[in-house]
Design a binder for these strands. Structure first.
Lengths: 162, 162
DNA sequence: CTAAACCGTACCCCATTGGTACGGTTTGCA
DNA sequence: TGCAAACCGTACCAATGGGGTACGGTTTAG
């Protein structure tokens, strides 16, 4: 597949799943029927695989970012507006905690080559810089909020702007 | 091995090679004999594998961050002081360009699912934030500049500080 | 002439990730 | 009361990319 994220670009590669999560969250934000959409419905409207969408939703649900209601008329619903949902929360939910080094945040002093390690804990300025940069970015900032973008048959072509 | 970087933590994982690069660059900065050290020597003093160190040096050399001199009395030398060497340069040299998405920086409009892609190019605020956070961090900032830390036999234990 | 070191390329192994499958439980509705 | 639709949890499989290695070639001091 491949949506917006790079294939094997380089650093700072966050997973495709995170990309999918943003897509799905955006779609959920556009929902109108009480803001509830089903996983199969989301899969159809986004073009992603249904099992993949389910997986993403499950993870987001586990993190408390969406709420799943079971049963025949079930579906998923945002627990918060996207403007109040930090990007870091989604990243943490999908990819785990945002950390660059192991020595720094985790229990310090567990390096297997602790002896003769010349840069112990020296990466934390980078960590802090990254965290500071990422905090303050909400999903709404990424969504651009085109709101209720229809996706009829044919070729929507969201790109055509400007 | 594993030096300072996390194993499989999460986002923002930059490669171990970049970690090694910082280690090697720091060692080179501590050198005194005209600032020239050999790859085997660096491997021995850092505890890293000799082929791996060579690989890192070769890459750094190709990026112009170090200068390799061949022959019997050859070795590597910094082309700039660490304070004037940006972290982003090292990252770019080892891991490639710092980019989060493919659609944004590269030739736009090559998404295989370009139609119905709801977040085209929406990741660039993140890209910008990351770049802005990383610029302004030099290798000297990471090195801490303990300068000429001896590594005799026994157990150096750099951690023992404070 | 030889040894030591850099250089380039190509190769292999394995861990992480993306994606899938399946059985179970809940719930609206006929 | 049974059925269908949807969420839930877990486990599994395939492939991509990165870490690490090997090898042959070229340069250069002694």
């Amino acid at each position: 597949m491949g949506y917006g994220l790079a294939e094997g670009n380089g650093v700072l590669r966050l997973s495709k799943l995170t990309d999918y999560a943003v897509v799905v969250l955006t779609r959920l934000d556009e929902a109108e029927d009480g803001g509830v959409l089903t996983a199969p419905g989301l899969a159809a409207s986004t073009g992603l695989g249904e099992p993949t969408v389910s997986k993403v939703l499950k993870t987001l649900s586990h993190a408390g970012l969406v709420e799943g209601r079971r049963g025949a008329a079930g579906g998923y619903r945002l627990t918060r507006p996207l403007g109040a949902m930090a990007l870091t929360e989604v990243i943490t939910a999908i990819d785990g905690p945002i950390a660059l080094t192991a020595c720094v945040d985790n229990a310090a002093g567990f390096c297997d080559a602790e002896a003769r390690c010349p840069v112990r804990g020296r990466w934390d300025p980078v960590n802090d810089a990254i965290r500071r940069a990422l905090s303050g970015i909400s999903i709404a900032d990424l969504a651009g909020v085109p709101a209720v973008v229809p996706h009829p048959e044919g070729e929507p072509r969201y790109a055509a702007a400007e």
